[in-house]
């Protein structure tokens, strides 16, 4: 269990993390979402004592990170896959970490096997692709078989097979009763792997809930209708003040219940071939909820002009 309470981190006059509080339950994968610069990585660094905080605490089963005698046995963290000496071999990279927390050298080979890097154990990290470095970082996380796992963008650089592997692994770790906190920009992946979400913007907590509650609460819903008498149905709906957008063979009804459309069609003898409720994705919900917290915006038109000029 991770309990973060009132965490505040400032860089000069800039507040990177602002009185942030949340909990990560054991037995679930908790997604940590926020736009670029929202303070996700800073929060993770503060949680394990790499960065000092102005106020607040982060406790792992009731203990602060600095109180842990052999922290790799309690908390496994992957903050940046690039945090490995390029001149050292993968095995030696894991060996020094294992030694620092009095682990057996056999454990190094076990985790290399687990992440599929056994064949390149004697290769220098500098020769690794980003995906291989991510796997090495995950091997380092798993060295101490920790109860808490914290990963910052673990899917970066992984191929589709690697992404699926990490998704299955994190779900498996959570099913073993571990607390898993993972940040990712791949929202479709997050929708598949996370049970709970913590969403932050500009260093502040926006919401903390389950993925389904988040989508229910923030994603748009609409009703899709297919009918051979679509034009008549749309006219009837518009007469009643409904907001409808018409496609070539279907119509989308916004802000109304599916039942209302069904009743309207039945009352007017309109045949329906499809009446379905559509819900926006996690990405839609995320963009909706963080719209005011995005610090860096891109503009497609400006970018294309810039490239061309």
């Amino acid at each position: 269990m991770i309990s973060v309470e009132g965490l505040t981190k400032k860089y000069g006059s800039t507040i990177a993390v602002d009185s942030l509080s949340f909990t990560v339950k054991p037995g679930s994968v908790t997604g940590f979402l926020g736009p670029n610069g929202s303070g996700k990585s800073t929060t993770m660094r503060c949680m394990i004592g790499l960065d000092s905080v102005q106020s607040g605490t982060a406790l792992f089963d009731g203990k602060s990170y600095r109180e842990l005698k052999k922290p790799l046995h309690e908390v496994g963290t992957l903050l940046d896959a690039g945090n490995a000496h390029s001149g050292r071999t993968a095995r030696n990279h894991l060996r020094w970490l294992a030694m620092s927390n009095a682990m057996s050298p056999k454990r190094v080979d076990e985790v290399l096997e687990l992440v599929g890097l056994m064949d390149v154990a004697k290769k220098r990290v500098g020769q690794f692709s980003l995906g291989m470095k991510q796997r090495l970082g995950i091997a380092a996380v798993m060295l101490g078989d920790p109860k808490v796992v914290i990963l910052d963008e673990p899917a970066n650089g992984l191929d589709p097979e690697g992404i699926r592997w990490i998704r299955e692994m994190l779900k498996h770790l959570a099913s073993q009763g571990r607390s898993v906190l993972v940040s990712s920009h791949l929202l479709s992946e997050m929708a598949l792997m996370a049970d709970d979400l913590i969403v932050i913007g500009k260093g502040r907590l926006i919401t903390e809930c389950t993925v389904s509650d988040f989508i229910d609460q923030y994603a748009k819903k609409w009703v899709v209708v297919k009918s051979p008498q679509l034009t008549s149905l749309v006219s009837l709906a518009q007469e009643q003040g409904m907001h409808v957008s018409m496609g070539s063979d279907l119509a989308e009804f916004h802000g109304v219940e599916a039942a209302m459309i069904g009743e309207l069609a039945a009352k007017n003898n309109v045949v329906l071939h499809e009446l379905s409720i559509q819900t926006g994705s996690l990405e839609d919900a995320f963009l909706e909820v963080t719209a005011d917290a995005v610090q860096y915006h891109g503009h497609a038109d400006t970018q294309s002009k810039g490239v061309g000029s």
Partner: peptide, 18 residues
């Protein structure tokens, strides 16, 4: 300085927070 230039200082301090 290698620890800082290669980023391993974060792992070192995560493994030994004291």
């Amino acid at each position: 300085t290698q620890e800082y230039s290669q980023g391993t200082i974060r792992l070192t301090l995560a493994a030994n927070p004291r």
